[in-house]
Design a protein around this nucleic acid. Structure first.
Length: 731
DNA sequence: TCTGCTAACACGTTTGAATCGG
DNA sequence: ACCGATTCAAACGTGTTAGCAG
């Protein structure tokens, strides 16, 4: 069993001290700081920036992300997207199919998917529409789905469609598979993060977060809106059987039901010895045929409705640009992820491509039917109701979503497409201040089990750092990805690990930019921009962030093992996949998101009636946030909401994309620019900033391939394994 | 009684091993 | 023995439905 004993250096790093520090300011999340700071070896400090590492970044090319199947999403959005969540986990459909551009082909990037609450409300399907009926439940542990190809070069990401269809959603709060845990009947907004991974040991250089408002959805355990059901059946190949011509179509099912009844009655008749009914004792086929006419109406009724012409989405207008900055921080155990991802990428680079194709094909279904114009706000029963907006934050009011979106146009009525709360509302706020329990405030990284990867794109990260000059230049302002990233170059991973890593990793270019289409209205929708106030501690000196201690047991090793120096709640890192029968390896890392909680006063989380005005959802707008770690602290001001006040010209109606907004600079690697928590600002999602922490010991090279192999043994068709990195241990 | 959740079900898709032929 | 194409069975994904719990 590979454990910390074998790799002491992998033990919890100093960064955890920072967690403790946060804890001091955030009593709500005491668990996260159980680790004893004294136990943290100084040698775990982050390596200093390399000699070649530039102190500042020069904006080069902006990273752009496009939602390839935006039309499909828009179709669903126009009705009110519903996502089934099950105990075992359910894939999203439509899935996120993305196109990235503007990346440095030679640098490595990690792609993450997380799903954050869009508001603080719970919904109910009433009167043909979704209505906010109360406050959201306590926030669940944040889990992040790491694209199986990660880390991969920019060329890799840009050469193909990026699909997150392996990500699964569950409502099982005790989920051990690493699926993204969501509450049913709540509204969520997926986010995609592009993180530069220049080196296995050093993440950073830039982070870009993208939000596509049309991907917002409400979670359900059973579909509420028939229109959604019809759309799914028609668009999802797995549901072909339920189509009109399918054997499991309503028509056929009704026919079967009728036959059943018929058989039953026939049986009764037979029992009754009624000779007159003998002629009706026909084979099923005949019975079916006879009933066809009667069932025709039913079948027709079950036919998917034509695309709603009212849908205002215009494919051509879908210019995506990263303008949105998540306000909720997502802390990633960089080290762990880096090592894990590298292997993952090697083994499963291309796996997603094929499967993605299926959806792609499906996406084309019916898309043409939808008109390009977005429906004017209307009390569409199927559309998302406006959700209560969180109280405005004092400090980051400027960054609030409202700023981004057009607050001037509050959406009085419930538009069919309403995404106001996405940016403005901060579920976390409500949860953290009111209902969320500390234990629930966790961020977890999910590593989908990749299919066997054919792609060779993933390359060793070690080489990348030294060989990627481009990494030095960043046109975007550094964000908070790894505020905790150690800057100590002296740090070196265990030689053995280094070798392993180098063997697997070699290329990692970097260049980021964020491209997203703008949804002006949706952002500002929140009259009260989520309070993006930074807790006092944010302004304090940056404490070394705890590193993510993690070691991977060898094959057959126990899935969980104690981690010295790790908080009790983190002592056990579960790697279900390590067992042949186990589904997915998961590692839970402490969630730093809670750290933001203090920024929001409890009052801000009070549930507000849905009557709050919601800006009409405007398709074609996308929020993306880009940042680069290397940005100097001086750029920090840009991170402030104020800087975001001026959204790019409303491109909602145009396909043109505008440069990503610079949220803030977080000199993670630059010793000169110490980490400043307050710089990690996300105007769009004040309460959900994605914060990555670099783990100086990321060098732990734990081949994931064997994990996947094992997984495959247990699951011949691995659709994705997950790596959880939240504080909550996975069992 | 209503609402929401779960498990079972049937169907279609996907996947990988087995098989076959060159 | 190797490689590629084909076949097949199992697992998986999906929506539906009945039943259960609160």
């Amino acid at each position: 069993m590979l454990s910390l004993e074998m790799y002491p250096s992998l033990s919890l790093g100093p960064q955890r001290i920072g967690d403790c520090f946060f804890r001091a300011h955030m009593p709500l999340f005491p668990q996260a700081c159980d680790v004893n700071p004294k136990a943290l070896p100084p040698r775990l400090l982050a390596p200093p920036p390399g000699p070649n590492e530039p102190a500042t970044n020069t904006p080069k090319e902006e990273v752009k992300m496009e939602l390839e199947n935006a039309n499909l999403w828009k179709q669903f959005s126009s009705v009110g997207t519903e996502m089934i969540i099950t105990k075992k986990g359910r894939r999203m459909f439509p899935g996120l199919r993305l196109k990235l551009s503007g990346l440095n082909p030679s640098l490595r990037y990690i792609l993450l998917l997380d799903i954050i609450p869009a508001d603080n409300s719970r919904y109910r399907f009433q009167g043909g529409g979704w209505q906010a009926v109360g406050g959201a439940e306590a926030r669940l542990p944040d889990r992040v789905f790491i694209h199986p190809d990660s880390p991969a070069t920019g060329a890799h990401w840009q050469d193909r469609t990026i699909s997150f269809h392996y990500a699964k959603l569950t409502n099982n709060t005790l989920d051990t598979q690493g699926h993204i845990i969501l509450h049913s009947l709540h509204r969520y907004q997926p986010r995609v993060h592009v993180i530069e991974a220049r080196d296995v040991l050093r993440w950073g250089g830039g982070q870009h977060s993208f939000v596509f408002p049309e991907t917002q959805f409400i979670t359900v355990t059973a579909y509420q809106n028939n229109k959604i059901t019809d759309l799914k059946i028609n668009a999802n190949p797995f549901a072909k059987g339920f189509r009109e011509d399918g054997m499991n179509s309503k028509k056929q099912r009704d026919a079967r039901q009728k036959r059943k009844i018929s058989v039953s009655s026939e049986t009764l008749d037979i029992v009754n010895c009624d000779p007159c009914d003998s002629t009706e004792h026909l084979p099923q086929s005949i019975t079916s045929t006879s009933s066809t006419a009667d069932l025709q109406a039913l079948a027709l009724a079950s036919l998917p409705p034509l695309p709603d012409p009212s849908c205002g989405f215009r494919p051509g207008e879908a210019a995506y640009q990263d303008t949105l900055v998540p306000q909720q921080t997502l802390d990633l155990g960089q080290a762990f992820m880096a090592s894990q991802i590298s292997d993952i990428g090697l083994s499963m680079a291309s796996g997603m491509q094929d499967t993605a194709g299926s959806e792609m094909a499906n996406n084309t279904l019916g898309e043409p039917a939808y008109t390009s114009t977005f429906p004017a706000p209307e009390a569409n029963s199927s559309s998302f109701p406006s959700a209560p907006l969180p109280p405005p934050s004092s400090t980051f009011s400027s960054l609030s979503v409202s700023d981004i979106s057009d607050t001037s146009n509050p959406h009085p009525s419930i538009p069919s497409m309403d995404y106001p709360s996405i940016l403005s509302s901060s579920p976390i706020l409500s949860s953290s201040s009111t209902t969320t329990t500390p234990s629930l405030q966790q961020t977890t990284f999910t590593f989908p089990t990749p299919p066997p990867s054919n792609s060779s794109s993933p390359q060793p990260l070690l080489c990348s750092s030294s060989s990627s000059p481009a990494a030095n230049t960043y046109h975007t302002i550094p964000e908070t990805i790894s505020p905790h990233t150690p800057t100590d170059d002296s740090f070196s991973a265990p030689s053995g690990l280094q070798d392993q890593i180098s063997a697997h990793l070699n290329n990692s270019p970097s260049d980021h930019s964020s491209a997203a289409f703008i949804y002006p209205n949706s952002l500002p929708a929140n009259p009260d921009p989520a309070p993006v106030t930074f807790p006092p501690f944010f302004n304090q000196n940056h404490h070394p962030l705890p590193t993510l201690p993690c070691s991977f047991p060898p094959h057959g090793a126990p899935t969980s093992f104690p981690l010295p120096s790790v908080p009790s709640h983190m002592q056990n890192l579960a790697f279900p996949n390590m067992h042949q029968n186990s589904a997915h390896p998961a590692l839970h890392l402490q969630n730093q998101a809670p750290s933001l909680a203090p920024a929001f006063t409890p009052s801000t989380f009070t549930h507000q009636p849905s009557s709050l005005p919601h800006p009409p959802f405007q398709p074609s707008s996308c929020f993306a946030v880009s940042s680069s770690f290397q940005q100097s602290a001086a750029s920090a001001p840009s991170a402030h909401p104020q800087n975001l006040h001026n959204p790019p010209p409303s491109s909602s109606t145009t396909s043109s994309s505008y440069p990503p907004l610079e949220r803030g600079a977080i000199p993670q690697f630059n010793p000169v620019a110490p980490y400043r928590p307050d710089m990690a600002l996300y105007h769009s999602f004040p309460s959900y900033p994605l914060r990555l922490r670099q783990d100086p010991h990321s060098s732990l090279s734990i081949p994931f391939r064997h994990l996947y192999r094992q997984h495959q043994h247990g699951h011949p068709h691995p659709q994705g394994s997950y790596l959880d990195m939240s504080t909550r241990a996975v069992f």
